[in-house]
């Protein structure tokens, strides 16, 4: 029974996640169009709501081109790594409290492991293999440069990401993600308790997902399309999907660590039944995530790309000291209060 429930949870979460990711692509296109005083795709279905499906059909029917001197096996493997990592990271993120369905108490989290944060950090740093391997196996100078850049960028931002997560762990006293969420009950959200850590983590999340101020691995004016220059068809689709899935997952992680996860203040004082409270909590979680994704998109169309040396300066000379400072302040706060 346990196993069956887990399998159903995996299927439901995967379905919902892929649906959201597909529609995040549409959201990005519509929102960026609105920012540029355009309308954006509005022809396929009502207000363009079927556009993601049309895009997927187009990508499926495209020819899969592999460069002549490319390493075929690794060229095929790289997008699978990227997409797999992007989709499996969500497994430990709690998206709601327990819910009672058909007499079973179901925990709204796929895998409740006691080293949740470590699992996330490990998997996100695994994601860099997808980019670097694709860059190397394509046998193209642009792809290679993109891959090398992505690995250097990941290494420098993983550090400050880990250090700012340490602050959260110190406050919550646990590595388990649902313990961290429970510690943020009411208005004790971590964004209020440690705003510096929030900003460093958010910046590092931007760098990890290769979103615009830090999208050097795929910098269009310099590197054509960066690491996925030599990809087409479904394999390019996998990269495209994994970029947006990464965005979704890192928004979910930021929500869990800093914005109270599924915790909604005052929800217990309305006087609804437990079932509806869980529904509100899950939708609250999703709303927080979608708002963060919109934030990602607006930032993309606001801030120009950093130069490579600026990126490294910001990572090593600013982010790292600031996150260490945040750690010290957090330790001091715990010691005093």
């Amino acid at each position: 029974m346990e196993l069956l429930i887990t399998v159903i949870k995996i299927i439901v979460v995967m379905g919902v996640m892929l649906g959201i990711v597909a529609y995040v692509v549409l959201l990005e296109r519509r929102l960026s169009a609105a920012i540029q005083n355009r309308i954006g795709p509005n022809r396929v279905g009502w207000q363009g709501l079927l556009q993601p499906i049309a895009d997927v059909i187009k990508l499926v029917f495209k020819e899969d081109i592999v460069p002549v001197k490319a390493n075929r096996f690794i060229h095929d493997l790289a997008p699978i790594i990227s997409l797999g990592v992007a989709l499996t990271t969500f497994a430990v993120v709690p998206f709601g409290d327990k819910i009672n369905l058909f007499g079973y108490d179901i925990k709204l989290q796929i895998a409740d492991i006691n080293i949740g944060i470590l699992y996330i950090l490990a998997l996100t740093s695994l994601g860099v293999y997808g980019l670097t391997l694709s860059g190397w196996s394509s046998n193209s100078k642009y792809a290679l440069l993109g891959g090398v850049r992505s690995s250097a960028q990941m290494i420098s931002y993983e550090l400050s990401m880990g250090l700012s997560v340490l602050g959260v762990i110190m406050v919550a006293g646990s590595l388990q993600l649902d313990k961290i969420v429970e510690a943020q009950a009411g208005w004790k959200w971590n964004i209020i308790l440690q705003p510096i850590g929030f900003f460093t983590f958010l910046t590092a999340a931007f760098a990890e997902t290769n979103r615009l101020p830090f999208d050097l691995p795929e910098a269009e004016p310099e590197l054509v399309a960066g690491y996925h220059t030599e990809y087409s068809g479904l394999k390019f689709g996998a990269y495209y999907l994994s970029e947006y899935a990464n965005m979704f997952v890192s928004s979910a992680i930021v929500t869990t660590l800093y914005l109270g996860g599924w915790q909604m203040p005052f929800v217990h004082s309305i006087g609804l039944s437990d079932f509806w409270i869980s529904i509100i909590q899950v939708s609250g979680f999703l709303i927080k995530v979608v708002l963060l994704i919109s934030f990602f998109i607006i930032i993309r169309w606001t801030i120009p790309r950093f130069r490579y040396d600026q990126l490294m300066n910001l990572g090593w000379k600013f982010m790292l000291p600031v996150s260490i400072l945040n750690l010290l302040i957090t330790g001091l706060g715990i010691l005093l209060f």
């Binding site: 929102l31 609105a34 920012i35 540029q36 005083n37 607006i298 930032i299 169309w301 606001t302 801030i303």
Partner: peptide, 9 residues
């Protein structure tokens, strides 16, 4: 900057 971007919407 974000205020300017959003006002364009």
């Amino acid at each position: 900057g974000m205020r300017i971007t959003l006002s364009q919407v």
